[in-house]
Design a protein around this nucleic acid. Structure first.
Length: 427
RNA sequence: GGCGCGGUGGCCGAGUGGUUAGGCAGAGGCCUGCAAAGCCUCGUACAGCGGUUCGAAUCCGCUCCGCGCCUCCA
């Protein structure tokens, strides 16, 4: 199994099974419903975990929830903890609806403060951090390898708002003292809260140890977030993540879907409108590293593919042919190439190889495409009567019954096999 | 200004030196009371310009265009 890593800029071979494989993925900051773009790293990491497990690996997937952040204070002055709590539940609810299972651990920043504090203390002892008026900053100039992940050259980083407390404008906060409007605070360095990046260094180490295999997240996190995470952990002498998987952004109306631009579609709304199968197939159509356009057209095409898979099982409840598993496995083993794997699924579909098709779909949590809805007895009764009307060549009555069946939410198809009709739930 | 990723047929999207990707949409056909589903047939695409090569979507150079990041972001 090979995966492209941002750090080395090439595909890295994973150690042989069973590993173990520790995976850490940056989850959302919780202050509103997550959007479809936020769902991409969740979906990809769950898929990779499922695939690795089928390949005999022991995988521990840790996906954090950031519940301490300026956005949360701004969104709910005086009640930030309550908002974070509520939005965390939304997040779990919405991602549960994807039907892919859950990561093994979903730690929260607010529950990892002791570990965060001891990591900061280590950095202070090593001279890689300094305290000023209750803030603690990381001393970027002291870490030679800083910038290696993102390729940023420290001297070229754009000028920021000057902060007189920093020794160097590139330094970033490990700890921030409590500011007006912030209603949560932890009693260290005179009261305050962790910076954005340190929580991930601490949580990853707490659950995966000082060295682990894969770190994931959106491409927009490469700099500064992951660069700084890496700096903190490497600075503290940890090996940290070996492979860095950054997924491409979802585009909406030609631009990155993001909360700050406001061009978002919430995961919940998308699932309600298109269904989880269509959304999962949509994610399958593009390689995980590439940007994807989210639009009615691309979603409709994905929904059509999902329906085509369902039809294969209606046509061949029992496999009509055997499929070759190898090309499918090879596609996923080579940098988790889902578009290529999808092409194999379509080949199995066209050949009636529903055995392999079901197994392949299972990897992506799409096995329900093989589970055909049984129509209620009343609808089946109408279909049987329609069959009789057709046999009697009373087509007016047959069409009337078709309308009635459609009214009940089902389409009737004539087939050669018993009982002579097939009922398909209308989309 | 710096760092990085891209540009493939109407649309989506794999493919990194020679071989059919695949899907969606569309056209024609088979089947069919109608319909749906299914099956068959149909598209000589690789941003542009140079170069390397027997051969380039694929390698090299330049140009144009798009997108992401540069301390809020999946």
């Amino acid at each position: 199994m090979r995966l492209y890593s941002t750090l080395s800029r090439r595909k890295e071979e994973l150690p042989p099974p069973p590993g173990p494989i520790g995976m850490y993925v940056c989850g959302p900051t919780v202050y509103q419903r997550i959007h479809v773009g936020n769902a991409r790293p969740f979906v990809i990491s769950m898929w990779v975990k499922r695939w690795l497990e089928r390949r005999g690996y022991e995988v521990t997937l840790v996906e954090n929830i950031t519940d301490i952040n300026d956005k949360i204070y701004d969104a709910a002055p005086g009640a930030s903890a309550e908002l974070a709590e509520r939005a965390s539940r939304w997040y779990v609810e919405d991602t549960d609806a994807l039907g892919l299972g859950r990561p093994d651990v979903e730690p929260k920043a607010s529950e990892t403060v002791p570990e965060i504090v001891s990591l900061i203390e280590e950095l202070l002892e090593r001279g890689l951090a300094y305290e000023v008026d209750g803030d603690v900053y990381f001393r970027v100039a002291r870490l030679a390898e800083y910038g290696r992940l993102s390729g940023q050259r420290p001297d070229q980083v754009e000028e920021q708002e000057p902060n007189p407390l920093k020794e160097d404008p590139r330094d970033f906060a490990l700890w921030k003292r409590t500011k007006p409007g912030e209603d949560t605070s932890w009693p260290y360095w005179g009261g305050g809260r962790p910076g954005w990046h340190i929580e991930c260094s601490a949580m990853a180490e707490k659950y995966l140890g000082p060295a682990f295999e894969i770190h994931g997240g959106g491409l927009d996190l490469v700099f500064p977030h992951h660069e700084n995470e890496l700096a903190q952990s490497r600075g503290a002498g940890r090996e940290f993540a070996r492979v860095w998987m950054h997924n491409g952004m979802l585009r909406f109306t030609g631009e990155k879907m993001s909360k700050s631009l406001g061009n978002v579609a919430s995961l919940r709304d998308v699932l309600e409108r298109w269904g989880r199968e269509a959304l999962l197939v949509f994610f399958l159509t593009a390689h995980w590293r590439k940007p994807v356009d989210f639009s009615d057209e691309t979603m409709a095409a994905a929904a059509a593919q999902a329906e085509a898979f369902r039809n294969a099982f209606r046509l061949h409840p029992e496999p009509a042919a055997a499929g070759d598993w190898e090309p499918f496995a090879a596609a996923l083993d080579d940098d988790f190439n889902t578009p290529e794997a999808l092409a194999v699924l379509h080949e199995w579909r066209a050949r009636g190889a529903t055995g392999e098709l079901r197994r392949g779909l299972e990897v992506f949590g799409l096995e329900m495409l093989a589970a055909l809805d049984a129509a209620p007895a009343g609808v089946a009764e109408l279909a049987a009567r329609r069959l009789e009307a057709r046999a009697a060549r009373d087509f007016a009555e047959a069409d009337r019954l078709r309308e009635q069946i459609a009214g009940a939410g089902w389409d009737v198809r004539d087939v050669a096999e018993e009982p002579g009709f097939q009922l398909v739930r209308r989309q």
